[in-house]
Design a protein around this nucleic acid. Sequence first.
DNA 1: TATTGTTATACTCTATAACTATA
DNA 2: TATAGTTATAGAGTATAACAATA
Lengths: 158, 158
Amino acid sequence: MSAPEDTPSSHAQLSRRAKLQNGLLPGFLGSALRRAERAVFRAIQRVLENSNITPGELGILLLILENEGLNQAGLGNAIGSDRSSVVGLIDRLEHASLVRREPSLLDRRSHALSLTPQGAALVKRLLPKVAAQERSLASRLTQAEQQQLIELLGRIGG
Amino acid sequence: MSAPEDTPSSHAQLSRRAKLQNGLLPGFLGSALRRAERAVFRAIQRVLENSNITPGELGILLLILENEGLNQAGLGNAIGSDRSSVVGLIDRLEHASLVRREPSLLDRRSHALSLTPQGAALVKRLLPKVAAQERSLASRLTQAEQQQLIELLGRIGG
DNA sequence: TATTGTTATACTCTATAACTATA
DNA sequence: TATAGTTATAGAGTATAACAATA
């Protein structure tokens, strides 16, 4: 609205809503990532509003669904978190009766993770809604662009 | 190494290093974003190792450099944080003699932010190093792909 | 009435270190 | 010796609510 002209010299007052210069910011990639991540987070959050789980937790449920028998260290490895961080995550999902810890048949140190019927049902109920929300979030991205985005991100973060 | 074959049925043990299934994960975009962001963060962190500032702080310095006179609420708006969160960030940068708070000439409630000479010098010293590090991080992305990545991210997070 | 900077406070996420039981 | 799960603990990062000064 009342965006002042660009006068980055001396000490022109910049209003809260002014568009800022952010030139070639080498940090821009990181910054763009953070903002995009937040946008995705919020979009998925809208879907999950009355589901009592967070976007991150949904991701964990999906990983477990597709990798039944996974142990906690493996899960931590998959989501890039320390195994000590996984404990609390699984604790909460277990208390919510969405995930089960079962003794591994192959390694008595491990817990084999799996979804409870409720957990699986919840994922299946939410999946289409989340997908729809992601589509609307990335509405200005074509399907191909979405795929490429994920591919490019994977090459950086993979 | 000893990666077991894919047997996602029943409760096959999945080793820590096994490649996981992660199908169409609607959460995958968010997850990919998070992982990429971490990778960028760590890469820039390596450059900043003995600079006593974090990647996020460097981003703030750059924003202030390019938007001198910006106030704290405006900065918070730019980085997507609450103004109460900005206070501590600027406190630290001010104590490090990298940023100055000056009384705004136009609004006596506001502080006009600017870099100290040291702050500006630090940014100019670090900029090329960070850019180089980003290039090596995204070494498998062409220049065009890097640009497109930022463009796509901007459309999501913008 | 609304906004800026600030403080107090709390919450989430995550990591490190140390322990135990297994391998 | 090394790894899986766990606990205790601490550190970022961030938000909410309230307040004084100012708009």
